[in-house]
């Protein structure tokens, strides 16, 4: 089993965010985590991220883009720790040929190829979101964790990006609020309510109504 939580609780500023969670996720699964905002989705992802940090590409909700860098370097950051200091310094002065090629291909897939030289501060929310996803792609990890990675995209773009995420990773655990996307693209859906898991089933057994219950 890839991820395993048993009877896990988590408090933040003396507020109980996760309440006695037990959960197992196998390699190769495609899992959606749904629920109202503030219900503990991000905390759950953080707990999972801590379990396999070496094999995970983690796309957090706040995107963590560095405002003073252009898009290319923000994506390059994904592999920063794998390269030596000299290579990174040179890349800052002039993009590394190999990295540029690889990053251009990723940017092409996410439709931000024309923005690589732009400063991230100048991009729209949706474009910034795709830069964050591109950074995760560039890491080339088998597991993708995403916290609302397509929340700011229109529905066509959101589907394109989500397909790209699914195609590039073996295992995905993604928090999202779009119920249609959850039902359409994921094998398994975990529903959270008030810090507890109230739904955990294969997508085939889940209906729109079941999901609507979570948002009441």
């Amino acid at each position: 089993m890839l991820f395993k939580l048993s009877h896990c609780s988590f408090s933040y500023h003396s507020r109980l965010v996760l309440d006695d969670i037990s959960l197992g996720i196998n390699a190769g699964e495609t899992v959606a985590i749904v629920g109202q905002s503030g219900v503990g989705k991000s905390t759950l992802l953080n707990l999972l991220a801590a379990q396999h940090s070496d094999n995970i590409a983690y796309c957090t909700q706040d995107r963590q883009l560095i405002s003073g860098l252009n898009c290319y370097n923000n994506i390059y950051l994904g592999k920063l720790a794998q390269f030596g200091a000299i290579k990174n310094l040179l890349n800052m002065l002039r993009p590394n040929v190999q990295a540029l090629e690889e990053i251009s291909a990723i940017a092409e897939q996410l439709h931000i190829a024309d923005k690589l030289q732009a400063s991230v501060g100048k991009l729209s929310g949706g474009q910034q979101q795709r830069v964050a996803v591109a950074r995760a792609f560039y890491q080339r990890r088998p597991i993708f964790l995403g916290d609302e990675p397509v929340a700011n995209l229109d529905s066509v773009r959101a589907q394109q990006v989500l397909q790209a995420i699914l195609q590039r990773h073996q295992t995905q655990v993604i928090a999202l609020h779009d119920r249609d996307l959850a039902l359409r693209y994921f094998d398994r859906i975990i529903g959270l309510q008030q810090g507890k898991i109230v739904l955990d089933a294969a997508t085939a057994d889940v209906t729109q109504q079941d999901l609507q219950q979570l948002y009441l």
Binding site: S53, D54, I66, A81
Partner: peptide
């Protein structure tokens, strides 16, 4: 940049 913990070493 907490989602890249390995950066602490470089």
């Amino acid at each position: 940049l907490r989602q890249l913990p390995e950066l602490a070493d470089s």
